[in-house]
Design a protein around this nucleic acid. Sequence first.
DNA 1: CGCACCGTTGATTAAACTCAACCTATGTGG
DNA 2: CCACATAGGTTGAGTTTAATCAACGGTGCG
Lengths: 236, 236
Amino acid sequence: MGTFCNDSRVEHGDINWYKYSIFSEESKDVLLWLESQVRISHLERGQVLYREGDTLRGVYFLMKGVVKIYQTGVDGKEQIIRFAQKGDFIGFRSVMNEESTCSSAKVFDDGKILFISSKSLEALLEKSHSFAKAFIKMACRELKEANKYITYIAQKSVRERIAVALLMLKDSFGLDGRQVLKVVLTREELANFVGTATESVIRVISEFKDDGIIIREGRKIRFGDEQKLKRIAKIV
Amino acid sequence: MGTFCNDSRVEHGDINWYKYSIFSEESKDVLLWLESQVRISHLERGQVLYREGDTLRGVYFLMKGVVKIYQTGVDGKEQIIRFAQKGDFIGFRSVMNEESTCSSAKVFDDGKILFISSKSLEALLEKSHSFAKAFIKMACRELKEANKYITYIAQKSVRERIAVALLMLKDSFGLDGRQVLKVVLTREELANFVGTATESVIRVISEFKDDGIIIREGRKIRFGDEQKLKRIAKIV
DNA sequence: CGCACCGTTGATTAAACTCAACCTATGTGG
DNA sequence: CCACATAGGTTGAGTTTAATCAACGGTGCG
């Protein structure tokens, strides 16, 4: 929990808050105050922000990088819930509910993060209506995603789910100019995201490759035929 | 969408807001104002509050009864997301995000409901910090439930999921004095909740019966051995 | 070199779905 | 009152899907 070796107080006016849509409505005053409240840290892959069952003293705001949010099943199998990205809050559910966390958070791509204590967050929510509203919106957006995901997982075959997962990854990470997915997951990670066995992922990916739907470039995945993928995912 | 034949304006001071924890912090002033803003309706089983893709003009607050929230998969199969109950808000996700709904809501048990227009909700959120906070908490609580459910569905066998579902139903609806579950679902509904086929539910339920874990009483389910059920669900 | 990690493949097994038939209760119209 | 329809529930057989188990290949690194 928060064992960073590179924490630092923020210098006055360091942060460009307006890069992040959740803060876009805030006044300079509020943001300067907030800046005095936060602690900034650099993140390195593999670093653990918190583990299932930890009690958090505040929330994280991801400025850069990717953080993997996951739960551990009874048999120790990891279920990836989502990949938090630039502009996402992390850990707010358990802080708001004053409960211990029911998921773990681990750095997936190096980045930069803010820590905002529960007290400061509460103060911010009281100070600024617009922030409170944006915060609610964010929670609602996540809730919608979660609900959609329930229907996907509950009703789709592994093949369909893998197609959906690839499209979701494309949506949130994007492709480079050559249609190559801007994120690299191991087969096991993809399996943990989709909720299936590693071997099943390998077989399906290899089928997709045979059908020209994707092209493997080393560890990276290049999209060959997105329309076909969407048809498999049964998304209109 | 809101085709009620029995809408009515609320009389001054009619509603006992303090029965609902989300309003417990509010002042009399705020609640009287809110009371002037809402429309109250009686609900009858089968009535549809809204359908997937509708645009809502406001949110619902359930005072009594049960409302089923579900999504429809591509093949028309229904996935039950949750059962909203007394004290729950319904439809707030799409209203907050100004999007059309991605689920449908149908009355499951007769009840009473308030309609609060988007404008009034927004005004309420601005008027009252404590309400905004309670609202955020509620969204976070739902988010937590949804995430837990993702892990359950993705990783557990049908047998385990049915056990979990029965325990969840017990938690949210309760048992009467004779350990009989206070809600009646058809096998198909249970299947749509668990995300499986009707026949699978029937077989598992019948196994549970043989093991003395549950006793069937007509349509109703009586709990025989909750400990065993928890062991099957693999909940510690 | 040997180890660790990832990816792959095949064979086998287990889980769950589908299809089809049939039972039961309940309600309805002739 | 009976015949019939309907909806929910149940069972069995056959099939599909995906998990599991086991072995093996490639790559990078101390």
